[in-house]
């Protein structure tokens, strides 16, 4: 959802695309990483690849339907969160979305290919950037 500014329909399409890729590559899984890391890698790479193809289209900020019950203030906050995430570089966007999902930094390092220390520093920097952006929105 974070990659697509909360656009639920596009997120569902992308999720289906990821499932198909996982199915296609399953025979190549050698157990060198955990299955969750392996699936997250496919997810991150698929999202980045698809976003590049659609780069020319401006992403519409559109909040998912399950938020229909939420109060307008929360909706507004989510919209600004998506806008701020969208301002980050593609790599930083992936890293912070994994952090927001609550993944351990060690796993984020394995998914992205950066070392643990670099991830820690990078996350710290993006956190500041994102917090400031959300505050100023």
């Amino acid at each position: 959802m974070g990659y697509l500014s909360g656009n639920e329909a596009l997120a569902k399409d992308m999720a289906q695309e990821v499932f198909i890729k996982v199915w296609q590559y399953l025979k190549d899984f050698r157990g060198e990483a955990t299955i969750s890391t392996w699936i997250f890698r496919i997810t991150v790479n698929t999202c980045l690849q698809e976003l590049r193809k659609k780069k020319t289209k401006s992403l519409k900020i559109d909040i998912a339907s399950n938020e229909a019950n939420e109060d307008p203030e929360s909706e507004k906050q989510f919209a600004s969160m998506y806008r701020c995430i969208n301002k980050l570089s593609a790599e930083n966007k992936s890293i912070i979305l994994l952090e927001l999902e609550g993944l351990p930094q060690k796993e984020i390092a394995a998914i992205t290919g950066l070392n643990h220390a670099a991830i820690r520093t990078r996350i710290h920097r993006i956190k500041d950037q994102l917090s400031k952006c959300v505050k100023n929105e």
Partner: peptide
């Protein structure tokens, strides 16, 4: 802190599941 607040909000937010089954894939 601000980020912790953002993270909590993010995790409370339900991600919709695609209605895809294995046969479709």
């Amino acid at each position: 802190n601000d980020f912790q607040h953002i993270k909590e909000q993010w995790q409370q937010h339900q991600t919709p599941l695609p209605n895809t089954n294995i046969n479709e894939i």
